Amino acid sequence: MPALALATDAATLSPLALFLQADIVVKAVMVGLLLASIWVWGVIIAFWLGAGGLARKCAAYEKDFWRSEDIDGFYDKRGKEAVPSARVFAAAVSEWRRSTRSRSVDREGTRDRLSTAMASAVSMEVDALADRLNILATVGAVAPFVGLFGTVWGIMRSFTAIAAQQNSSLAVVAPGIAEALFATAIGLFAAIPAVIAYNRFSHRINRLEASLSRFADGLYATLSRELERA
């Protein structure tokens, strides 16, 4: 009999049983947190697949660019590639061509516009990547508190059961406390991967931004020298 009782208790405290035994409020918290966790993993996988190799692609593109001796020829051939470095390069060449179209070239004005165009392109690339991480930051910050709300609600139910039955035995309070702690566990399950992924991906974006900025600085110096020859 004791073994059978322990098996029954273990089944009662299984994750599915805890969910089914919870009231509507705790169930809503659990479902919301599970959906948030699925969303987080979707963002993590999408970012990993889509942006994981961007640094390598940018490095390869920039290496090919610095090997090239003809800026216009390189732009005509590879200026429209779907790489952040290519879009920074395209912004620079586009502004260069507009600014040097006339016979009288304003060198200082051209330099200022080139700097602004490339800085804007770098910012747009970084913002496009960082925008995907907002959900990770939000879930990482909010999910533990949502789980805590479920915990508080479950403990309140336990105290209500104690008052209703006038019995403070473990059998009365255990289900509500177990549901409460399960809600907290789901909140942490959603938040921990979100925080880890957000920090890791933010570091990658910062490194990519620094790399793009260095490329833009080198490109600015090259085009500035071309202005002196004009």
Rank of each mutant, 00 (worst) to 15 (best):
V126P: 07
F89L: 06
A3D: 06
V195P: 11
D217V: 01
V142D: 06
V25W: 15
G42N: 05
K77C: 10
A163V: 01
A171R: 12
L129C: 05
E228H: 07
D127E: 00
A36N: 02
S85Y: 04
D9G: 14
A130N: 12
K80N: 01
V26F: 02
L16I: 02
E125Y: 10
M1K: 13
G52A: 15
R97Y: 00
A46I: 02
R87W: 00
W153C: 10
I205P: 07
V26S: 06
L13R: 05
G50C: 00
P2E: 05
A180P: 00
L34D: 03
S224I: 05
W48F: 11
V172H: 12
L35P: 09
S102F: 02
L181R: 06
F159S: 04
I192T: 02
L18P: 03
W153I: 10
K27D: 15
S85F: 07
R132E: 01
W41E: 07
Y220E: 15
G154R: 05
P193G: 08
A171F: 03
A60C: 13
P2M: 07
F145E: 04
V40M: 03
L13C: 06
A174M: 04
R207K: 09
L208S: 06
L148T: 11
G52S: 13
S14K: 01
V142S: 04
E62I: 12
L188Y: 12
A141I: 11
L4I: 04
V83W: 15
S85H: 02
D217H: 13
S120Y: 13
